[in-house]
């Protein structure tokens, strides 16, 4: 089955009608990204990595530093600000990546297998962190995962098989939890 070009409706904009720069502004304003491979800038401190999105928003150096410190604190990395990715464990790197994604206070966090490179213990910690962000800050989380354990955190699970939607289940859960897309 071949992937077909489509259209995404987001923040009252149709993605197909937007220019590259308009899409970039949309990402900058509303979206946060978390990747499986962290994608932190090498040889750059955790703090500077988290500051990066704010740089493109044109915020002052002092404001950037302050916001980045707070974001790192909220993912539990106080005292690790000066460390470069090479000096951090996988779980810590993913926390830095999450801090980078939420430092701009996005409406939606897109997570592409955020726990794919982590062991079970670290995975749980990351999922708990993401759930907390969802609950406490009201950030919508859209996550792609292969792991049913991680998908279980979600309120709504959409299952894809070979690019086709197989099922779409909304779970009645006592506590609000992030949405997830599970790829089988």
């Amino acid at each position: 089955m071949k992937l077909l070009p489509g259209n995404i409706c987001f923040a009252m904009c149709m993605s197909s009608g937007l220019s590259r720069d308009q899409r970039a502004r949309l990402r900058r304003r509303f979206l946060g990204f978390v990747f499986q491979g962290y994608n932190l800038l090498a040889r750059t401190s955790a703090l500077e990595n988290v500051e990066l999105p704010l740089l493109y928003r044109g915020e002052s150096a002092a404001a950037r530093r302050e916001a980045a410190r707070k974001a790192l604190a909220s993912v539990g990395l106080v005292g690790w600000e000066k460390h470069t990715p090479a000096e951090l464990s996988g779980g810590q790197q993913q926390r830095v990546a999450i801090a980078r994604a939420i430092v701009t206070q996005p409406a939606v966090l897109l997570a592409d297998e955020p726990t794919g490179n982590l062991d079970t213990q670290r995975s749980r910690e990351i999922m708990d962190l993401l759930t907390t962000l969802n609950v406490e800050r009201g950030i919508t989380l859209v996550m792609v995962t292969h792991e049913p354990d991680m998908a279980a955190y979600a309120r709504r699970v959409v299952r894809f098989v070979d690019g086709c939607i197989e099922s779409d289940q909304a779970k009645a859960s006592p506590a609000p939890a992030p949405a997830a897309a599970e790829v089988a």
């Binding site: 590259r20 720069d21 970039a24 502004r25 990402r27 900058r28 304003r29 979206l31 990204f33 994608n39 932190l40 800038l41 090498a42 990066l52 999105p53 493109y56 928003r57 980078r100 701009t104």
Partner: peptide, 16 residues
């Protein structure tokens, strides 16, 4: 290239 990808993903404009 990957670094540029990250920058673009988090909202860097082409001209930036």
């Amino acid at each position: 290239t990957r670094e540029i990808g990250v920058r673009l993903a988090i909202g860097a404009l082409e001209r930036e």
